[in-house]
C-alpha cells in the first residue's frame, strides 16, 4: 500500500460563516463552519481547508471561536488560512486547534515569515499558498514551461488574485521550500471558478520540482478533473469547493470514481 491521495474540501469563511460560493452569494446560504466540517468529515473528506476572508478587527475573536468549534467536532486534520501575517496570528489559530496554517500574501511580502513559523511550530504546520497566473510574455530569468498553448511562465499574484507581482511561481516555490514550507497549496487564477479543470501544467511544474506535498486548487468541475491532476499533474492532494458544496458530486462519489480509476484513496 502507499500513501493515499487526499481529497480536500475548501470552505470560505466570512465573519464566522461559510460563504458557499461567490457566484451564488446569498447571505441565507451561509453555513455554519462546525456543521459543514462535521458533514465533510462524515462523508470521508481527508482534510479540510478554511480560508478566512473576514476583513475586520474582530477577526481574531471570530476565528478563535469557530476554529475551536471545528477542532472539537472533527478528528481529521484541517488548515486555516487568510490574513495570517505573523507568528502571533499563527499561534492563535494553532492553539485554537487547527493543525496547519496557510500563508500567502504575507509570505510573498516577507519570505522570512515562513522560516519564523517553521522554527516555532515545525515545517509540517506551514502551508505556503501560491496563487499563480499564466504569463505569455517571455521575460529574462523566468522559468518557461511548455503547455498546450505554447511556452508560458507562471506569475505569482497576491491579494486574492488582484496584484501581479512579477515573481515566478516555480522559483518562489523553491525558495519557500528552502525557507521551511512544509506543503504547497497551488491555486491557478486562470482556472479558479471556471470548472474547466485544474491547471495540470502548473501543478506538475511545481510538484516535480519540490520535495514536499502539493495540494492542487482551482478549476475542479467534475471528478475526472481530480483524476487528471493526480495522475498527470502529480498532485498529492486536490482541493475543491463548489463541486462538493452543491452536492453535485459528494465526496463519496468522487472517491468511488477515483478508486475505480486506480488512484489510491482512503475508504
Amino acid at each position: 500500500m502507499t500513501l493515499a491521495k487526499r481529497i480536500v474540501p475548501c470552505l470560505d469563511v466570512d465573519h464566522g460563516k461559510v460563504v458557499k460560493c461567490i457566484n451564488f452569494l446569498n447571505p441565507k446560504q451561509a453555513g455554519d463552519p462546525v456543521e459543514m466540517a462535521q458533514r465533510y468529515s462524515d462523508d470521508g473528506a481527508d482534510e479540510l481547508v478554511f480560508l478566512d476572508i473576514t476583513a475586520s478587527h474582530e477577526k481574531r475573536d471570530i476565528m478563535r471561536k469557530y476554529v475551536e468549534g471545528v477542532a472539537k467536532a472533527i478528528n481529521i486534520p484541517f488548515t486555516v488560512g487568510g490574513g495570517i501575517r505573523n507568528v502571533l496570528d499563527a499561534r492563535l489559530v494553532l492553539c485554537s486547534g487547527a493543525d496547519k496554517v496557510s500563508v500567502n500574501t504575507a509570505a510573498v511580502e516577507k519570505p522570512k515569515l515562513i522560516t519564523e513559523l517553521a522554527d516555532v511550530f515545525g515545517r509540517q504546520c506551514v502551508v505556503t499558498a501560491i496563487d499563480a497566473k499564466r504569463n505569455r510574455t517571455p521575460r529574462d530569468g523566468k522559468i518557461m514551461v511548455d503547455t498546450a498553448e505554447g511556452k508560458v511562465w507562471f506569475e505569482v499574484v497576491t491579494y486574492g488574485g488582484r496584484k501581479p507581482t512579477g515573481f515566478d511561481a516555480i522559483a518562489w516555490a523553491l525558495e519557500a521550500e528552502r525557507l521551511g514550507a512544509g506543503e504547497f497549496l497551488v491555486t491557478s487564477m486562470d482556472r479558479d471558478g471556471t470548472k474547466d479543470g485544474y491547471d495540470i501544467e502548473l501543478t506538475r511544474a511545481i510538484s516535480e520540482r519540490v520535495n514536499v506535498p502539493v495540494i492542487a486548487s482551482g478549476g475542479a468541475g467534475i471528478p475526472k478533473h481530480l483524476l487528471d491532476v493526480f495522475t498527470e499533474g502529480k498532485a498529492d492532494a486536490a482541493l475543491a469547493a463548489s463541486i462538493f458544496h452543491y452536492n453535485q458530486y459528494p465526496v463519496p462519489v468522487v472517491k468511488d470514481y477515483l478508486r475505480k480509476m486506480g488512484v489510491t484513496i482512503r475508504p
Binding site: 500513501l3 493515499a4 481527508d46 506543503e183 520535495n211 506535498p213 498529492d236
Partner: peptide, 15 residues
Amino acid sequence: PSTVKVPHMGWNTLD
C-alpha cells in the same frame, strides 16, 4: 529517505 516527499503527510495504511 529523500527518494520520497518529506514530510510524509497524509493517510497511509497499517500492517
